[in-house]
Design a protein around this nucleic acid. Structure first.
Length: 434
DNA sequence: TTTTGAGTTGTTCGA
DNA sequence: GTCGAACAACTCAAA
């Protein structure tokens, strides 16, 4: 007789507390097997020491230890999703599979295939909203179509927000409902990876952070931001708790950043083509220079502009970059070097611990001027002026570019004034080509 | 349907 | 040093 169970399938929601799908699984009446799949379709594109895989493995280890205290375990496999479900169907009398919805194009397709496969076996795949406060079609214009401009979107989002949308789903009194079994957690080596030295830092959503956020968030040399992004990416924090913390302050600047996250998520969901295409096709005519050597200098943090170099070096050595500096480095790549935003998007995707397709594509297109509600193309960040405004005492620059000396730093690979004029000319010509 | 107002994060120039 | 305008017109959202 096969054991009768349901499954909760973890993906980007690596926590046991305030997890909507898990809450419903544990409340369903069946014993719940917690599952994680190292999806080989995703792994095959990553380096063997990818820091995000290390982080996922560490978080799984943490959950596994916690579950063993209640007599359960995490069931972890490496492979293709349908193959793993085949194994599970052979072993168990599967009742239901619970997941939290994932909105990226790859995930949507993967889940549709899993749902089809499971339904052939008469096993329903039940999905829940967990990753966001409002998803896909919950914040739309009066005619039902999606917003393409942030401000009206954020107003609607705020007007619809009420406690029911950020109430927590407590699982602490349901832990007895995990299926009891013991297993050893698969090691990082067994999935073909090795540990990275790069670590995700803890987040800070304290009241003082939220209150001070507006005043300090733009200074990369100051610890003025929450460092939430990788945790929101992998679900090691719940967005409902983040919103609760944000609402402790009367200042909504921090909350608005959480709304930006959902804005770009719904943009990607409605316009998945924008992963590869300009959101505004009138920019398709831009003749990017795409100089390989300059691209490499940008990647390595050797552009001769200290704030750009500091940012890229922070990214390369920590998997993180301060948001102000993300704008400066991205603007420099697209506008000073005239390198296609997709090249930069790809590089950030490889390096960022908090890489999220919707955010990365949305923000790169914003900087490049090709996106919805984007910065106007003639807005070209001046890397020297930005230092004067946001890193006046060179605290950030000196941290990441220790050899920096104000008067003797290596020569810039492009002259700002010339690059600026070249950019305006190229964009104008590109617009006329369309 | 037409009209109106507004639009994340900036820089430069010239008065 | 400070301030407002120009950058370039355009698209979006809502009345």
């Amino acid at each position: 007789m096969k054991p009768k169970i349901s499954i909760f399938w973890f993906r980007r929601d690596l926590r046991l507390e305030d997890n909507v799908g898990l809450y419903h699984a544990l409340s369903s009446g069946n014993k719940v097997l917690p599952l994680f799949v190292f999806d080989t379709d995703i792994l095959e594109n990553l380096d063997a020491d990818d820091a995000r895989v290390t982080f996922i493995h560490e978080e799984l280890t943490r959950m596994h230890r916690f579950l063993s205290e209640v007599g359960s375990s995490l069931f972890v496999r490496r492979g293709k999703v349908t193959e793993v479900f085949k194994e599970l169907l052979d072993t168990f009398d599967l009742q239901e599979v619970y997941v939290n919805r994932d909105y990226e194009p790859y995930a949507t397709q993967r889940d549709a295939e899993a749902k089809d496969f499971l339904s052939l076996m008469n096993v329903p795949l039940l999905s829940f909203k967990d990753q966001v406060i409002f998803e896909t079609n919950e914040i739309v214009k009066q005619d039902g179509s999606p917003y393409k401009v942030y401000t009206p979107y954020s107003k609607k989002w705020l007007s619809q927000l009420s406690e029911t949308f950020y109430a927590c789903f407590t699982t602490s009194d349901l832990l007895e409902n995990f299926y009891k079994f013991t297993s050893n957690l698969i090691s990082l080596e067994e999935i073909g990876f090795r540990p990275s030295a790069i670590k995700v830092l803890p987040f800070n959503t304290s009241e003082s952070m939220v209150n001070g956020y507006e005043g300090t968030r733009n200074f990369p040399g100051v610890q003025g931001t929450s460092r939430l992004s990788p945790h929101l990416r992998f679900g090691t924090v719940s967005v409902r708790k983040c919103v609760q913390n944000a609402l402790k302050s009367s200042n909504t600047t921090f909350l608005k950043e959480l709304i930006w996250r959902e804005f770009f998520m719904q943009i990607l969901w409605h316009f998945p083509k924008t992963v590869l295409c300009n959101f505004k096709p009138k920019y398709d005519g831009i003749l990017w220079r795409n100089n390989q050597k300059e691209y490499q200098a940008w990647c390595d943090g050797n552009t001769g502009y200290p704030i750009v170099d500091a940012g890229m070096r922070e990214l390369n050595s920590t998997g993180f970059m301060h948001n102000r500096v993300r704008m400066i480095t991205a603007s420099f790549l697209c506008k000073h070097l005239l390198i296609d935003w997709r090249w930069g998007e790809m590089y950030f995707a490889k390096k960022l611990l908090d890489f999220d397709l919707a955010q990365n594509v949305g923000n790169w297109q914003w900087v490049a001027g090709t996106g919805c509600d984007a910065a106007p193309y003639f807005r070209i960040f001046n890397p020297t002026e930005q230092v004067k405004k946001f890193d006046k005492d060179f605290a950030y620059i000196k941290k990441w570019v220790p050899e920096f000396q104000e008067l003797t730093y290596v020569l810039p690979i492009v002259n700002h004034k010339e690059a600026r004029e070249r950019c305006l000319k190229t964009y104008k010509e590109g617009l006329n080509n369309n």
